[in-house]
Structures are given as structure tokens and as C-alpha cells.
Design a binder for these strands. Structure first.
Length: 191
DNA sequence: CACACGATGCGCT
DNA sequence: GCGCATCGTGTGG
């Protein structure tokens, strides 16, 4: 049995909104503490620089924390917040341009609805910040497939105070790992 | 150096 | 719906 394939650099080095949508259905693999953790991505949010005031890279400003967002695509951006939670992002865009996709919900792994729970389920912490998902032997993203009925819902992001109207959140309709559903967006999608 | 606050989750009302 | 735990990080003095 061979190891699963993984997304390569070119899959991440694209516009953040494109990567966000395409990550839905893909599977994160992480070997930690002698065990494999894996979860299928069912909810994500895009964060960029230009015009996105909710982003850690708002206004294109570099800080020690967000520097990984400005680097080459395909690296893990893990940050710590609220004194107790970690969140896991995948860096996007070309080198020099900030961008990341926040992993907000996983299926196939226990209690992983919400970014902090998803990060905990994957056993990722600040120490994993900057790992290369393209070359790391114990952390990567497997290409995914979606069933025809797994429609992609696009809506606004959660838990932010700025740029609240940007439709930068994507999730798979009817997936259990989705943290919060948008009924209006869903009925519009269903037509 | 001091301080305000956050890309959250949980328990209680 | 609301309060709160708990600390890394950014900002300003």
C-alpha cells in the first residue's frame, strides 16, 4: 500500500479564493505522536492582503507573526489566539503576496467543526508554523473529490469585526464538520 | 514596558 | 444569546 498523493506547489500558488474553493474535499494528513491524524476539509475561509481588513496581513503590513503569509505558497501558517486556541492555515498566492486559507471544519475526525477544534484534531500547534506541506514527510494535503451533491456554499466569514461583508467563506453543503451554516445562502444555491 | 484584544469554544440562561 | 478563560502579538509610550 502506497502513501496517498499530495497537492503540489502549483496547487497552492494561485489566487486565495481559488485555492479555498478547491481545498474543499481534500484531506489533511498529519503524523503526530506516532499516530496518523487525517480529516477531510469541509469548511474554509480566505484571507488576503488587499482590501481585507480582517486578515492578519491587512493592508499588506508584515509582522513577525504573519510573515509566513507573505512567503511561498504551500506552507502551514499556524497561529495562537484567545490564550488557548490554535488555527491552521495554508499559505497561498505567489511569493511576496500575502494570502492564506483558514481550515475551519473537517469531516472524518472527531469534533472538528470550527478552526480551533480542527487544529486540535490534527494535533497542530505553534511549533508547526512554517512547515512545508509540499515536502514535509508527516504533513500534507491529499487531492480530494466531491460527490455531485456536495455543493459549495459561498458566504461571509465568522468571528471577525472588519470586512464582514466579503464572501470569503466556503463550505460543503450538508457536511457535519461545518461550524455554522448560512440558510439564506443555502436556499439561494438550491434555487 | 504596559496594555488591549483576538480568524474561539464551552457552559449557562 | 451571553460571559468568560487565558496568553501571544501588535501598538504606543
Amino acid at each position: 500500500m502506497s502513501l496517498p498523493s499530495r497537492l503540489e506547489r502549483t496547487a497552492f500558488a494561485r489566487p486565495t479564493l481559488t485555492v479555498a474553493r478547491r481545498l474543499l474535499g481534500c484531506v489533511v494528513w498529519h503524523r503526530a505522536g506516532g499516530e496518523w491524524r487525517r480529516g477531510r476539509i469541509v469548511e474554509v475561509e480566505a484571507y488576503i492582503g488587499d482590501g481585507d481588513l480582517a486578515s492578519h496581513a491587512a493592508n499588506g503590513k508584515r509582522t513577525p507573526r504573519n510573515r509566513i503569509m507573505f512567503g511561498p505558497a504551500g506552507f502551514a501558517y499556524v497561529y495562537f489566539t484567545y490564550g488557548m486556541h490554535h488555527c491552521f492555515n495554508v499559505v497561498t498566492e505567489t511569493d511576496g503576496r500575502p494570502g492564506a486559507v483558514l481550515i475551519r471544519g473537517l469531516d472524518g475526525i472527531a469534533r472538528a467543526a470550527g478552526p480551533a477544534l480542527a487544529c486540535r484534531a490534527l494535533q497542530l500547534t505553534l511549533r508547526d508554523n512554517g512547515r512545508d506541506l509540499v515536502t514535509d514527510p508527516a504533513l500534507w494535503i491529499e487531492p480530494g473529490r466531491r460527490r455531485r451533491d456536495e455543493r459549495v456554499v459561498q458566504t461571509t466569514r465568522i468571528g471577525i469585526r472588519k470586512s464582514v461583508d466579503l464572501p470569503y467563506r466556503f463550505y460543503l453543503l450538508d457536511s457535519p464538520g461545518v461550524s455554522r451554516r448560512d440558510r439564506a445562502a443555502e436556499s439561494a444555491l438550491r434555487g
